[in-house]
């Protein structure tokens, strides 16, 4: 291949040098990591417990549920969509899973994942096939799925989950909490999906320019339904961790998870304008939010204030997204 520099400079290159936009990209990616590292440094200075290995593992453990959901959310956001129903899917699928666990481990897991799949598929069909606005559809299903979870046991929690189930989703493997391993695996798989598969490219294309994607022969409906279904299944999976850690399933489990997941995705570099995002970034995003909560707790900041802090950080992340976009 010819060296770029040996060619006469073209108008395009003169007008807007590619390296500039790349610098914008780097800035964008680095800002996430820098922000996360700075947060860790600040808390480490303020509180000596914070940087103890056991606490760092705690942070990872606490972030893992959110991380799993955030990976699915990242894929959705990359198509320029949004899924507000993830928290309710967590609640509903974990209730069903807890109930079905009485028929065996696989029955519980299978039923829980199936519920997540069906919920996500329903979102996808309503959005992609009936062309309803994603925000409204998932706001509606947020309420529907939560209602279904409450109806399922008439609002009663389910206690007594099997030992194997708890060992699987809240145990340790080689001294590492299994939820952390689960989150890492999910994020890695999603990264490979985005980076190396046709589906991944189609997700980026749809988010980047849906009309162009359609006119180049991409099946928009199928890709969108797939993405919402993935989000549903991952929410179901996150629900397993939630109930395994608590030891019981509550119909209101997972409330408010949507903000955490959206926040993690955006902090991790996903752009609400579509076409940009990185599942590994959302992992860092989840860690950032987790560290924030953990650090504030260690500093005895009342939990009410932690809500405020999370919200502020999420809005800052969106602001940073817009800002780097304009400069880039």
């Amino acid at each position: 291949m010819t060296e770029l520099s040996s060619l006469p400079r073209t108008e395009a290159a003169d007008r807007k040098s590619p390296s500039l936009s790349r610098r914008g990209d780097v800035l964008r990616k680095a800002s996430v990591a820098i922000g996360c590292v700075m947060l860790f440094l600040v808390f480490s200075v303020l509180n000596s417990t914070f940087y103890q290995p056991s606490n760092l593992i705690d942070i990872m453990l606490q972030s893992s549920i959110n991380a799993v959901i955030a990976v699915g959310m990242t894929l959705v956001i990359m198509t320029k969509g949004i899924d507000l129903s993830v928290g309710s899917i967590v609640g509903l699928s974990s209730m069903v899973a807890a109930d079905m666990l009485s028929h065996g481990l696989l029955a519980g897991i299978g039923a829980g994942l199936l519920v997540g799949l069906v919920c996500g598929f329903l979102n996808g069909v309503l959005i992609a096939r009936l062309k309803l606005p994603d925000f409204i559809v998932t706001l509606g299903t947020l309420s529907i799925f939560r209602g279904a979870a409450l109806i399922y046991t008439d609002g009663q929690p389910i206690y007594g989950l099997s030992k194997e189930f708890r060992a699987l989703f809240a145990g340790r493997l080689l001294d590492i909490p299994t939820p952390v391993l689960l989150a890492l695996a999910v994020a890695a798989l999603a990264y490979l999906l985005v980076r190396y598969t046709a589906l991944g490219e189609q997700i980026i294309a749809i988010g980047g320019n849906e009309e162009a994607a359609r006119l180049s022969g991409i099946n928009i409906e199928r890709v969108k339904v797939t993405v919402y279904t993935i989000s549903g299944v991952l929410s179901g999976l996150a629900g397993f961790v939630l109930i395994a850690r608590i030891g019981a399933a509550e119909p209101i489990g997972g409330s408010g998870f949507e903000l955490q997941a959206i926040g993690s995705a955006v902090i991790g570099g996903a752009s609400l304008f579509g076409g940009v995002g990185n599942p590994l970034g959302s992992l860092i995003g989840a860690l950032t939010l987790g560290a924030l909560q953990n650090g504030l707790t260690l500093m005895n900041v009342p939990s009410f204030w932690q809500y405020v802090a999370s919200g502020v950080v999420v809005i800052l992340a969106v602001f940073a997204d817009q800002w780097t976009r304009k400069r880039g």
Partner: peptide, 12 residues
């Protein structure tokens, strides 16, 4: 509006 995805590279 209809043919390209501006943020994707030439290859994609």
């Amino acid at each position: 509006g209809h043919a390209i995805v501006p943020m994707m590279d030439v290859e994609r």
